[in-house]
Simulated assay, not measured.
Amino acid sequence: MKRLADIERFCLVGHLISMGFGLAGLLLVMPHPEFLSFVPAGQTLFRWSMAGGGVTYILLGTIAVAIYAYRMLGWRNWLTFMLPAVLISLSSELLGTSTGFPFGDYSYLSGLGYKIAGLVPFTIPLSWFYLGFSSYVLARAGLGRLFANRPWLWQVSAIALGALLLTSWDFVLDPAMSQTAMPFWYWHQPGAFFGMPYQNFAGWLGTGIIFMTVAALFWRKRSIVLPASQLDFPLVVYLGNFAFAMIMSMAAGFWIPIGLGLLVGVVPAVVCWKLAQVRSLTGIDAADVMLSSSQASSLDKPTTHTPVVVSTK
Rank of each mutant, 00 (worst) to 15 (best):
I258F: 08
Q155W: 10
P234C: 06
L153N: 09
A216E: 03
L166V: 09
I256E: 12
H188S: 07
F184K: 08
M182A: 14
V266E: 08
G142P: 01
F193Q: 09
F171C: 13
A228C: 12
N149Y: 07
T167N: 14
L263M: 13
V225Q: 09
A216S: 01
P197T: 12
A252C: 11
M250G: 12
S135E: 07
F211V: 05
Q155H: 06
W219L: 05
Q277G: 03
Q199H: 08
I210H: 04
F211Y: 15
V266Q: 08
G253K: 12
S280G: 15
V236N: 02
A141Q: 00
P268S: 10
S135I: 06
G206F: 08
Q155S: 14
H188E: 05
A160Q: 06
L165N: 00
P197A: 13
Q230D: 09
Y198R: 07
L146H: 05
M196P: 01
P151E: 11
P268R: 12
L231K: 00
G195S: 08
Q199S: 15
V271L: 15
L173F: 13
R140E: 03
V270Y: 10
W169N: 02
G240A: 13
G261N: 07
S134P: 02
S280Q: 11
L164E: 10
C272F: 02
D174W: 07
Q179F: 10
Q189R: 10
N149H: 11
G265Y: 10
S134Q: 06
L217R: 02
F244K: 06
A251N: 15
Q189L: 13
